[in-house]
Design a protein around this nucleic acid. Structure first.
Lengths: 203, 203
DNA sequence: AACATAAACGGACTTTACCCCGCTTGCAAC
DNA sequence: GTTGCAAGCGGGGTAAAGTCCGTTTATGTT
């Protein structure tokens, strides 16, 4: 009879059908991207192919970009695991400068791998899939701190380094010459540049 | 009677009415942005308010983002004039490192001023209004070269510095703390960070 | 098992970017 | 002034994003 004063210890987690449908939608989206490219993924199309209503798709992901962000999140989580507890030099254990360099190279490879989805996750209404960049930024700041880089403003530097790392790929700033899609060469090129930048900054 | 082999020395420049209409559209767009913000500028609305057809708007600017790019271009040109032939330290005449710092500060101020339009000019189909970034990049590369910064890859560094400079504002990467729109403080903050970064890189 | 309720669902509806194509017009050559 | 025509114009048409709201359903409670 009596109603507990605070009846919601947990906000009553996601319903089972909802979870199932989310997976189904993500799978379907992956399939559509593989088949026809990210550009061709429409909300109607996705809904229909997944056998669900359009309203459901929007309820789940809010916006078109949201789908791609969700897709990224999964891989992003795996990436972070490597960074947080994988083997050195990416993971903990190595010299912070070496880790910074390794992080940059790994991140570039990751963004290169995911650049189609990353770009599709961009959204002029809420442009930065904040998760990605922030995590990079926090990690970079931590490593700079560990490396004892003497700099007046650690926060500012980490913002800029994050931008220097992710900007070229997210903004698709000019690769060396070509305007063709990024290749493995580009990864090597950007990785080397990153290393040079870090070495220069850390003396 | 005889038809010249190459009758089109010049591709017959823009027609007078077209030029007039472009100006009219840009003015109208500026007005609408000032009144209701960039988000509220729709192609139909713009066309109607300018007393023109929707088709005309698209013929002129190609895409919605194109309008904002055109708007930026005008101011961008004035900015570049300052950089190319204004007084030092922004213009020529000062020490390259000082110019690099001045350029960054000026650019940050410019982007802050125009951040609404800049952001609106972003377009997931062709994301970087290539003009802006490239010009920054070329200028930065030139100054780095003048400064004789000994770096294995000048091009790579200039790409990264450009991203470091423009990325935070274009991507709206996290400002210090707030998620509120960028303020003058942000400009100072980013400017100081930029200066520190440049000083560190150039020893 | 029946119930209450919040969450999820679906699809019609609205809005907006962008395309198409027949009509009009500025411009230059005669 | 007439004429040829490429360029410009306009507005109806399409497709896709995002909103709304009435209906259905999972889940915790009695």
């Amino acid at each position: 009879m009596e109603r507990p004063v605070i009846p919601l210890g947990k906000p009553r987690g996601e319903r089972a059908d909802a979870a199932r449908n989310r997976e189904r939608l993500l799978d379907t989206a992956r399939g559509m991207i593989a088949e026809h490219g990210a550009e061709k993924v429409t909300m109607d199309g996705l809904a229909e192919r997944a056998g669900l209503g359009k309203g459901t798709v929007f309820r789940r992901f809010g916006t078109r970009a949201g789908i791609f962000r969700a897709l990224l999140d999964a891989d992003e989580r795996r990436f972070q695991e490597q960074v947080l507890s994988g083997p050195p030099p990416l993971g903990p254990g190595a010299d912070p400068v070496a880790r910074l360099i390794a992080y940059g190279r790994a991140r570039i490879a990751f963004l290169l791998d995911h650049h189609v989805i990353s770009r599709a996750a961009l959204d002029r209404a809420q442009p930065v899939p904040a998760g990605d960049a922030s995590v990079s930024q926090i990690h970079i700041r931590m490593l700079l701190d560990l490396a004892k880089v003497p700099v007046p403003d650690l926060n500012g530097l980490s913002i800029q380094l994050t931008a220097a790392l992710e900007g070229p790929l997210l903004l698709y700033l000019s690769m060396p010459e070509t305007s063709t899609p990024p290749s493995m060469d580009a990864g090597r090129y950007l990785g080397d540049s990153w290393q040079a930048l870090i070495e220069r900054i850390t003396h």
